[in-house]
């Protein structure tokens, strides 16, 4: 029997982070961005940059704009410029899967894509899978099965699972395992994750 986690406490921690350190960091970023806009203004077509350019990203149903240099990855743009922190930065080199987001429904490493390329595409993070404060069924099952320890890899696993189930609602247990080929959990919660896959594919209790 899995001990239920106090949701108010979990959300409380997020609200706390949002309210303090992150807000301060965002203010600093906004300060430096004003200078980058001026620098990027001379950039002539057909190429953009290397200075900052206006970039609009559709993230979790919202249009977010910022001045971002072309070299900035989608992951860095989300976390450092747009204050969207559901995608985690772990390896930052396309190996661990913690930064997995959905791009037009397909799972992609946000660290291995430039923000400028992601314009015009629908970006969904693990946060965007939720309806308000209500967990997506995949997230709910991850929680019920206690399929995370430190939790840093979890948003990546959840989005990778969401991608395969959106493509094939009848995905098998093996399909689920393959869908998270590119995700690593260093705490080793695979046993519980297999229980999640069993439940998601109709094999679990």
């Amino acid at each position: 029997m899995v001990e239920p986690i106090d949701t108010t406490m979990r959300l409380g921690r997020r609200s706390f982070l949002k309210g303090s350190g992150v807000a301060a960091a965002a203010a600093t970023v906004a300060g430096t961005m004003a200078e980058e806009v001026a620098h990027g203004a001379d950039a002539a077509p057909p190429s953009s940059g290397p200075g900052a350019v206006e970039i609009t990203l559709s993230v979790d149903g919202k249009e977010l704009k910022s001045s971002i240099e072309p070299r900035v990855t989608l992951l860095d743009a989300l976390r450092d410029y747009l204050n969207v922190t559901a995608a985690k930065r772990v390896c930052d080199r396309g190996t661990c899967g913690a930064c997995t987001v959905l791009i037009d429904g397909k799972s992609i490493y946000a660290c291995s894509m430039l923000a400028i390329e992601a314009q015009g595409k629908k970006i969904t993070t693990a946060r965007g899978l939720m309806k308000g404060d209500e967990l997506h069924p995949i997230q709910q099952i991850f929680w019920e099965k206690d399929a995370s320890q430190c939790g840093f890899c979890t948003p990546g696993f959840v989005t990778a699972c969401a991608a395969v189930l959106a493509k094939n609602p009848k995905a098998t247990f093996e399909d689920m395992k393959r869908a998270v080929d590119g995700n690593i959990c260093r705490c080793g919660t695979y046993e519980q994750m297999f229980q999640v896959f069993e439940q998601l594919t109709g094999k679990g209790a």
Partner: peptide
């Protein structure tokens, strides 16, 4: 720092690489 070009034709892509004079890289999946 890196600039970014997104040409619509192969000819434009070659032109962009040529203009970069050896410092351009073709970029597919990345």
């Amino acid at each position: 720092e890196i600039a970014y070009a997104a040409p619509r034709t192969v000819a434009d892509a070659v032109a962009a690489l040529k203009q970069a004079n050896g410092n351009g890289k073709a970029f597919a999946g990345g």
